[in-house]
Simulated assay, not measured.
Amino acid sequence: MKITQIRNATVIIEYGGKRFLVDPMLGAKGTFAPFPMTGNELRNPLVELPMPVAEILQGIDAVIITHTHLDHIDPTALEIMDKRLPVFVQDNKDAGFMRKHCFTNVSILGEDTRFGDVQMTKTPGKHGTFPMILLAGHTCGIIFRNDKEQTLYLAGDTIWYHGVETTLDKYSPEVILINAGGNKFKGFRPVIMHEKDVLEVHRHMPKSILVATHLEGVNHNTVTRKELCKFAETNDFSDKLLIPDDGQTISL
């Protein structure tokens, strides 16, 4: 498998002979307004794409939308992506959203969703704690399996909680892709994993390779690559944690 970090939670996963574009945020730097209650007024995305959009979209077999927040599917992506591409979403609500934007090949992820030789299984996520979870809404993760590949767990926007622990116990993924930016709003706990949550994943699956994404892309990120790297070194798991830069491809 290959994982290419594009920007924020946008990644390309090459797995089982297929090329998946995950959570495409494809607009130029500063295209949309800051997320509120963050203590800053930086417009999103915070950085430019590391490569031209045409290069990102080249050879994509399918798109995966873990949920429809702006930093996971933005107006630019909705406008420029091929409306005939297979799109996988978490539920009927998100399917309706994509169909409203003229995508014609939308499927809802389930226990045994097949795309070519790739088996995908939707997994639960918890997008923060009360009361922020009421605003953040539903999200999901995905288990990828293929006879010739290691099992991959795309955790999505979630904090560390029993649902993630149960998923790890059930599927024993060798590779875990973690949204690790510690995104939060003033006065509330993070709505996705931060350094200590990443450590909990490692402690539960000490032999697995962790890949950190969703860093330094939007104004409510609180964890930087440098901080996460130092934390992993201090807690003796830096040999199991990969933190790709935007535009970097990791082969596993």
Rank of each mutant, 00 (worst) to 15 (best):
M1R: 07
Q5G: 07
Q5Y: 12
I6G: 07
R7L: 13
R7G: 02
I12C: 07
I13Q: 11
I13G: 06
I13W: 11
I13H: 13
E14L: 14
G17K: 09
V22I: 15
D23S: 12
D23R: 09
P24Q: 06
A28C: 02
K29R: 10
T31V: 01
T31W: 00
T31G: 00
F35N: 10
F35Q: 08
P36W: 11
P36E: 12
N40R: 04
N44G: 01
L46G: 08
L46S: 02
L46P: 01
V47Y: 03
V47I: 06
P50W: 08
M51T: 08
V53W: 02
A54D: 15
E55G: 01
Q58G: 06
I64W: 11
T66H: 14
T68P: 03
T68F: 01
L70T: 03
D71Y: 04
D71G: 03
D74E: 04
A77C: 02
L78M: 03
M81G: 04
K83M: 04
R84H: 10
P86H: 00
P86N: 03
P86G: 01
V87Y: 06
F88Q: 04
D94W: 03
G96I: 01
R99C: 02
T104K: 00
I108E: 07
L109K: 10
L109A: 04
L109N: 07
F115C: 01
G116R: 03
G116D: 06
Q119V: 08
M120W: 13
P124S: 12
K126F: 05
H127D: 01
G128Y: 02
T129C: 12
F130I: 15
F130P: 11
L134K: 15
L134V: 14
H138I: 14
H138L: 15
T139Y: 06
T139L: 08
T139E: 07
C140E: 05
G141E: 13
I142T: 15
F144K: 01
E149P: 01
E149C: 10
T151A: 11
T151R: 15
L152G: 02
Y153F: 09
L154P: 00
W160K: 06
G163V: 09
V164M: 08
E165R: 10
L168Y: 00
Y171R: 06
Y171A: 06
P173Y: 03
E174N: 07
I178Q: 07
I178W: 04
I178C: 12
A180N: 02
A180T: 02
G181P: 05
F185M: 09
K186D: 15
I192L: 14
M193S: 13
D197I: 13
D197G: 10
D197A: 13
V201L: 05
R203N: 14
H204N: 12
M205K: 15
M205R: 15
S208A: 14
V211M: 05
A212P: 09
T213G: 03
L215S: 09
L215P: 06
N221V: 08
N221R: 05
R225I: 03
A232D: 01
A232M: 00
T234W: 04
T234D: 05
D236A: 13
F237R: 00
F237M: 04
S238K: 12
L242A: 06
I243A: 12
I243K: 14
P244D: 12
D245Q: 09
D246S: 14
S251K: 04
S251F: 07
S251P: 04
